[in-house]
Simulated scan of single mutants.
Amino acid sequence: MAIGLPSIDITFKKLAATLIQRSARGIVSLILKDDTDTTYAIKEYKSQLQIDATKFTAASVQYIKDVLRMGAAKVIVAPVATSSVAVVGDALQRIGSRKYNWIGLAEGTEDEQTDLVAYVKEQEKLGKSIKAVVFNAIDPDCQHIVNFVNPTITTTDGAVTGDKFIPRLLGLLAGLPLTRSSTFYSFADVISVEEPADVEAAVEAGKFVLFNDEEVVRVARGVNSLTTLSPTVSEDFKKILIVESMDLIREDIKNTFKNEYMGKFKNKYDYQVLLITSINSYFAALAGEDVLDNTFDNKAFVDIEAQRAAWVAIGKTEAEDWDDQTVLNNTFRSNVYLGGNIKITDAMEDFTFNVELQ
């Protein structure tokens, strides 16, 4: 049976080797209010040259270009009739089960931003890693939602309201690799922005803010909208870079288990050890790429207490007194209870330099 395990090792090696590249080639779903052509559900573009301008208004064409020129690998365009009373719901039906990483509306109303927030939160509860950029949403408080708040942005082409800048941010966040954060990213064509009254307070409140830094406009801090912390949700979860890394790692492990392991091996400790060894090799490779901290003991393991609790829950109370090895040897039905402890590397964003003069 173990003859199949090398395929898992190979899969994890390939995933680790391409993680940086994959992280920089995210897919965006862009919701547009546009009924220029109602003969199709969605359009997918990987290049600005592919855009069929006859299918959209001039404004919509520019929004699509904004996503692609910022670095996204692909944009899934979901046009919804301007008369729609359920813009987000209609768009999601059109998008269906297609895979994407980021989603947002161009020119979305407050209610539509709220609908998108609700959808992403639902997906988060289901273990999905879809992320959204919304405009000035009311207290989204979610690690998968980026809440952009600048009221106006002035570019070399003129001034636009914040909601119309969402496609640019979707393209930026989908296009950045895990080797850097969006903090202090500068926009070459942006002349100035209308800032919140207190930029630092806005960032602390989970708002994504652009600010005027002398003659350059920059991202103040690459944060999502998370503000509520807990013993299992730390300050790190506020960083877009950390959440993006965490999502990609989780997806790699989940998909590899589903495609290479599920149903193919008996659920016994020996095979669980082989799976864990493969995952730990993947972690080691990510540490070599600076995605994980190579000075930290990044590792996966059997979640002994979860497995023990499963036995106790069905009435096998003697499991409470089993030593750890006995728990490991007594796998529970078809369930594989694994845990992990990793340290994702953040970007350099804060600097203190104290100089003492003698």
Rank of each mutant, 00 (worst) to 15 (best):
D163M: 12
D163G: 11
D163T: 14
K164E: 13
K164D: 11
K164G: 09
K164W: 12
K164Q: 14
F165I: 03
F165E: 05
I166L: 10
P167G: 14
P167E: 12
R168L: 13
R168H: 13
L169Y: 01
L169S: 05
L170D: 05
G171E: 10
L172G: 05
L172E: 06
L173F: 05
A174S: 06
A174F: 01
G175F: 04
G175P: 04
G175K: 02
G175C: 06
L176S: 04
L176E: 02
P177K: 02
P177R: 01
P177A: 02
T179S: 02
S181H: 13
S182P: 00
S182K: 00
T183V: 06
F184Q: 12
F184A: 11
Y185M: 08
S186N: 09
S186I: 04
D189M: 02
D189Q: 04
V190T: 07
V190C: 07
V190P: 08
I191W: 07
S192Y: 00
V193N: 09
E194F: 04
E195H: 03
E195K: 01
P196A: 08
P196W: 09
P196H: 06
P196C: 07
A197T: 11
A197Q: 08
D198T: 02
E200A: 00
A201W: 06
A201V: 03
A201T: 03
V203E: 03
E204N: 05
E204R: 02
A205P: 00
G206N: 11
G206Q: 10
K207T: 06
V209H: 03
V209F: 00
V209E: 00
V209Q: 00
L210T: 07
L210W: 02
F211W: 04
F211H: 03
N212L: 10
N212M: 10
N212S: 11
D213C: 11
E214F: 04
E214Q: 07
E215G: 12
V216Y: 00
V216N: 07
V216T: 06
V217G: 09
V217Q: 08
V219D: 10
V219W: 07
V219G: 09
R221I: 08
R221H: 11
G222M: 09
G222E: 11
V223N: 08
V223A: 09
S225P: 06
T227Q: 15
T227H: 14
T228N: 12
T228W: 11
T228H: 13
L229A: 14
P231T: 15
T232R: 15
V233W: 14
D236F: 08
D236V: 11
F237T: 14
K239N: 13
K239G: 10
K239S: 14
I240D: 11
L241F: 06
L241D: 05
L241M: 09
V243I: 14
V243A: 08
V243D: 11
V243F: 10
E244H: 14
E244V: 12
M246K: 14
L248T: 00
L248R: 03
R250N: 13
E251K: 09
D252E: 10
I253G: 01
I253C: 04
I253M: 03
K254E: 15
